[in-house]
Write a protein that binds this DNA or RNA. Structure first.
Lengths: 137, 137
DNA sequence: ATATAAATTAGAATAACTCTAAACTAACTG
DNA sequence: CAGTTAGTTTAGAGTTATTCTAATTTATAT
């Protein structure tokens, strides 16, 4: 394509974010492929591998801004590291405790029934199912 | 009771752990009451408040040992802090993102149907549902 | 009582972020 | 376009939760 960034530029503008060199590179890696699960470190490594100099602080900033504006979703599966998912629609995950691999549970293979109401004075903000698996034994 | 530690001593011995002064104090706080949700910091504060000098490293060690031997369960709800639950039977949680409060979803108020099989070569190790709520608006 | 293996500890180290203040740049204005 | 400004990036310092290390202490077996 002649203008490989147009889609991503639009996406950032719609989110109210300036399409800077850094955000463009990150957004391209994140959104120009299928659904992805990443951490700050893996995304930083990828963007450097693509020869765009971006600081780790900017990766963190971008991940949070993208999440705030709904382009990403955070998935909490590990108490020592934050994972982000480019698929922001409601779905659930397998998490391999040995490898750290996060993957989608295909739609329809799981369902949560009879959701409880939020406790008094609270507002529901999300429901996450994590199916933990292990590689060995 | 005359021997307030007998129960807890047995519990530790059954888990293959020496009933040391520190582990006894921690186990008493954890198991001599109803179900509890704690973090290393909160448990450390409690044990010091009970006037037993225990280092934070020992609290971390004990939490992991207790978890390994099935006396505790880790609940992953926050990517920056580990929570532990004294109720090790299968149940799910509310997590208040504003206050950090973790609470049980009463049994029967939620259920996960049609569990997916683990991906090839993997073994299922747990299923966790976290219902996130917020305090404000 | 002793020996020994296990447990505890202070303090250093690490990992994953977050913050700060200075330098840079996108985008608006005339 | 040149100037202005507000938003963005960054290096490096700071923070927080947790783990590690090596020395000391303690529980238990003998």
């Amino acid at each position: 394509m002649d203008r490989p960034y147009t889609g991503v530029i639009e996406r950032l503008k719609n989110a109210g974010l300036r399409p800077t060199r850094q955000r463009l590179a990150l957004a391209k890696l994140l959104f120009d492929g299928g659904d992805r699960h990443i951490t700050a470190e893996t995304l930083h490594a990828e963007v450097l591998a693509a020869n765009v100099r971006v600081s780790l602080a900017t990766v963190y900033n971008a991940l949070h801004q993208f999440t705030r504006s709904g382009l990403l979703r955070e998935v909490v599966v590990d108490s020592s590291r934050a994972y982000f998912d480019t698929n922001t629609s409601g779905h659930h995950h397998f998490f391999d405790e040995d490898t750290g691999d996060l993957s989608d549970i295909p739609d329809g293979e799981i369902s949560v029934s009879s959701l409880p109401g939020a406790p008094a004075g609270k507002v529901l903000s999300g429901v996450e199912v994590v199916v933990r698996v292990r590689s060995q034994q």
